[in-house]
Structure formats: structure tokens, C-alpha cells
Design a protein around this nucleic acid. Structure first.
Lengths: 208, 208
DNA sequence: ACGTATACTGATTCACCAGTCAGTAAGAAG
DNA sequence: CTTCTTACTGACTGGTGAATCAGTATACGT
């Protein structure tokens, strides 16, 4: 004799709630260890409710990742729009990409996503769009810098791919093997690579 | 009334067999989807036998990854020793790192390992040692090239970390999003980065 | 007030798979 | 040959967690 005890809210509102809770659990426990029951517990609702709104766990994760990726991208783009100077924009983007105590969970999430993406076309698509998004923004900033004479590059898009990929590879080291590489070392490496790539000195580039 | 029907072999031999079978299954099905039963099936033995030699699945994976990492590293080092010229050595290493139809499975394996390493200190250790190993070899080759005047770099180890991390980041794109980046594009990116980093022209560096 | 669409419950089902264990035989040692 | 160690079997157990579903209450429209 099951009986609902909780507040009824509209389906759209509930979906938003559930996605937020899913993100919270995924960041805390990791994508791999996330159980539908955890998400339900987070909202103090039944597991049945989660499945009422999302047919499968896979669908739930997909929605949450899509949402998170879009949010991350729009946050960077918004922050970039606030700055006029390409130099300041590049500085900001590099800082925003670096792992940090506050962002380590998010890095871990996307590293898990890479593994998931190997097996799952939908997830692969989401990860691809996020990567493309970052590269686009980097490329725009670099192109603007080339126009203003602050940087030079004969191919801003290619330079953006190299910078982004370097950030991915280095970030992986920092998150996985913090003993081997610190955030400060990573920062120095990226700044050095940006110097070489864009013929430009970023501030605060301590030697490794 | 269980009864053994198969050839008895020594424990050491069997362990080697099982590790090889585990690697095969992991490459084919992915680390994530590997079941102990698959490994047993691969050798046409019982699941009990696997657990007789490896107490847990985790122990089995650990042994297999340790083995695989060591093998990969010694293969590169051997190939490097065959070449006297630092330029040829660097060429070879970059080619060996690039994903290819033959190596895609191995890339997928290590990408899965990154995710696993997030949660597992032992696996993290193995991945760390492999990465350190590659960087060591790169650093030695670069240092040799600096001595011979072929490259210049004021910090071969740092340059090696940047090259290796770039390779990881780009390889990820190729394996995950082959539509976005091809092996040829990756190759061009790496060669371009090596040029910038080492002040040196590698052969065959087509523009992207 | 009444009916109906819809949000929600939670016990249950179902499948999966690592790890166990009692029993069995090969082959080395004496 | 007998004994004893060691490799090996395969049915079974136990834990896990996604997904189901019959039943229940709420809110909204009429």
C-alpha cells in the first residue's frame, strides 16, 4: 500500500531538481559509483520517482552531462565577454581550465566521461561538443589577439587545439598524479607553451 | 562431483597464461566490461581456476596492467637503443605514441585506466609509473639531441612533460572523436609543437 | 463536489557476477 | 605402489542495484 507523502511539483521542475541532484552525487561519489538510489536519497524521494522522470539511468546521466557541459561552456563565454583584452581573456581561460581543489571533482567527472565515451556514442557526442566548444573559444581569443597584435599565429584554430590538448594532458597528470605534477608546475608548462605558440609573454610565468 | 578435465601446468606458467588472456579480453571488451568468466572462457578453464591463482579480480587486473605497462616501456626503450640519431629516436617515439588501428585498443585500455585510477591507488601507481617512464625516455632523447646540437631546450625534462601531455590530450581526441581529429592531424600538431619546443624541423611535417 | 490526469511510493523482481567451497585427479616424493 | 601436495572443477551463494508495477494521493478542471 504505497502512498506518496511528498510535495507534488511539475514535471519540468522535478526534472531540473533531479538533474541537479544527479550532478551533486556524480561530483561527490564519481560517475562510476553513482546509483539511482543515491540521487533519490539526495532529494528524499523514492527511486521510483527518478524512473518516472527518466526511463533509464543512462538517460539520466546523459541529461545531466549535457546540462553540465552547456553550463560550463556558457560560464566561460560569459566571463570572456566581460574582458576586452585578449591577453586577459587567455589568462582567464587557462586559469579556469586548471584543476584546483574546487574543480578537481569536475575534472574527475570528465575523466570518467572519457572512459564512458569509449563505449557510448551519446556520451561521446557530449564530450565532443564540450571539447569543440572550448577550442572554439580559445580560437576566438587567439584570433582576436592576432588581430590586435598581441599574439601571432598563422593558424589560431590549430593553436587552440594544441593548447587545449596540452591542458587536457597536463590536467590529467595533476588530478591523477599530483605528486608528479603540481598545479603550479602545470601552470608554468602551459604558460611556456603559450609563449612558444603565440610568441607572447603571459604574466607570472615562473620557471618550473 | 566436480572433476578436472584439463592439463595441469605449473602455477607460474598458468599465471602468465591468465595474464595474457586477461589482456586479450581487456583489449577486446574494454577494462570496464571484463568479467572473470570471460578470462576463464578464453582459456577454456573454470572461473574457479582464475580465483585459485588470483584471489580477486582487482589483483588480476593489477597484475595484467603492471605487466602490460612494463612491456610497453621496454619495447620503446629497446627500439630507441637501436637508433643512434636523436632525431630518428624522437620520430620513432612520436609514431609509437600515436593511435593507429593497431594501437587503438591499447589507447582505449589506458583511457579506461585513467578513470579507474581516480578511485584506486594501486592502479594510479601503475599509470603514474608508465607516464613517468615515457617522460624519462623522451627527456633522455631530447637531452641527447641538445648535446648533439640537433635540438635546443633549456629544460629537457620540462619539454618532455609538455610533449607527452600534448600527446595524451591529442590522442584522446583521436580515439574518442576521430571525426574531429584524424591521426594525420594529430601527427602534424605534434610535429609543429616539437618544432616550437626544440627549435627543430622534423621530416614530413605537413600543415594541418 | 466529483472525476480524471498526473505525480509519486516502495516493495518486489530480475539479472548479473565476483568470490566460495567441497570434491577430484594428476603427478611428484618417498 | 602409496601418499600427499597442488592444480583444478563447477555448482552455488550472496550482494548489488536497475527497473517494474500495482496502488495511492494530490491538484486541477468542470
Amino acid at each position: 500500500m504505497p502512498r506518496p507523502t511528498h510535495t507534488r511539483i511539475s514535471a519540468v521542475e522535478r526534472r531540473v531538481q533531479i538533474i541537479a541532484a544527479t550532478r551533486k552525487v556524480a561530483l561527490a561519489r564519481g560517475l562510476h559509483d553513482l546509483r539511482v538510489a543515491d540521487v533519490a536519497a539526495e532529494l528524499a524521494v523514492s527511486t521510483g520517482l527518478i524512473h518516472y522522470h527518466f526511463a533509464t539511468k543512462h538517460e539520466l546521466l546523459e541529461a545531466m552531462l549535457r546540462d553540465t557541459a552547456a553550463e560550463e561552456l556558457s560560464a566561460v563565454m560569459l566571463a570572456i565577454a566581460d574582458r576586452a583584452d585578449p591577453t586577459a581573456q587567455l589568462e582567464y581561460m587557462i586559469d579556469a581550465y586548471l584543476p584546483s581543489p574546487r574543480r578537481d571533482q569536475s575534472w574527475a567527472l570528465w575523466i570518467d566521461v572519457w572512459g564512458e565515451a569509449l563505449r557510448d556514442p551519446e556520451i561521446r557526442r557530449i564530450s565532443e561538443e564540450l571539447d569543440d566548444g572550448w577550442v572554439d573559444v580559445f580560437a576566438q581569443v587567439i584570433a582576436a589577439g592576432v588581430d590586435s597584435g598581441a599574439f601571432h599565429s598563422d593558424d589560431p584554430v590549430a593553436a587552440a587545439w594544441r593548447l587545449c590538448s596540452l591542458l587536457d594532458g597536463l590536467g590529467l597528470q595533476v588530478v591523477l598524479h599530483s605528486r608528479t605534477m603540481s598545479r603550479a608546475q602545470m601552470s608554468a608548462h602551459v604558460r611556456r607553451a603559450a609563449e612558444l605558440e603565440l610568441g607572447y609573454q603571459l604574466v607570472g610565468n615562473a620557471r618550473v
